[in-house]
């Protein structure tokens, strides 16, 4: 009985709370800091992801608007097609590297590069096209490629002929314009 009372007294004298030992605190503080930073990072990533998603949807939406605006498309002209656009440059190269050809007109390498990138986009689009539409694009791409080939062949013989240079340049621009149309969701769905 006496032992029990003494035990109770001893318990009552125990402190209600104690501070952690000073040497443990740096680890806990570091852990809290790490978790807080992790949460901030996660929040930042989330915000960035959300912003990216919004930007993507806005871009898609604007793309649809642009597709509807034929005026802008015409104003852009086939000349714009010569410039690699943002979307194709994000795509991995799909075509085998062609043997290097000497430029017969200024910027021919860039025209070929743009055509290769658009061809990659078209190749990915092809399985989704119905047979008739695919036939139209295949036939006309063949026509344009033949025009490029014969214009190039003539230009090899007469490399300084400005008329042939213009003919070849036009043929490339026809190809870019056609590939842009053939690889566009708006004009093939």
């Amino acid at each position: 009985m006496t032992d029990g009372r003494e035990l109770n007294d001893a318990i009552r004298e125990l402190p209600r709370s104690i501070d952690p030992p000073a040497d443990l605190w740096p680890e806990i503080a570091a852990a809290i800091d790490r978790r807080a930073r992790s949460r901030r990072r996660a929040a930042t990533v989330g915000v960035l992801a959300a912003a990216a998603a919004v930007s993507l949807f806005v871009a898609i939406d604007r793309g649809r608007d642009r597709a509807h605006n034929l005026d802008a498309r015409w104003a852009a002209g086939i000349e714009r097609a010569a410039m690699p656009t943002a979307a194709p440059t994000l795509m991995p190269p799909t075509a085998e590297p062609a043997p290097a050809l000497a430029d017969l007109i200024p910027g021919e390498a860039q025209l070929r590069l743009a055509a290769n990138e658009l061809s990659g986009a078209y190749d990915r689009r092809r399985p989704l096209l119905d047979r008739e539409l695919l036939a139209v694009y295949e036939e006309n791409l063949g026509i344009v490629d033949a025009a490029i080939d014969r214009s190039r062949a003539a230009l090899v013989e007469r490399p300084d002929d400005p008329h042939l240079q213009r003919v070849l340049d036009r043929a490339y621009h026809h190809k870019l314009s056609l590939l842009r149309r053939a690889s566009s969701r708006e004009t093939t769905r």
Binding site: L70, D71, R73, W74, E132, L133, V136, Y137, R181, T187
Partner: peptide, 9 residues
Amino acid sequence: TRVEVATTS
């Protein structure tokens, strides 16, 4: 006053 047509086939 303004006509714009784009078509494939």
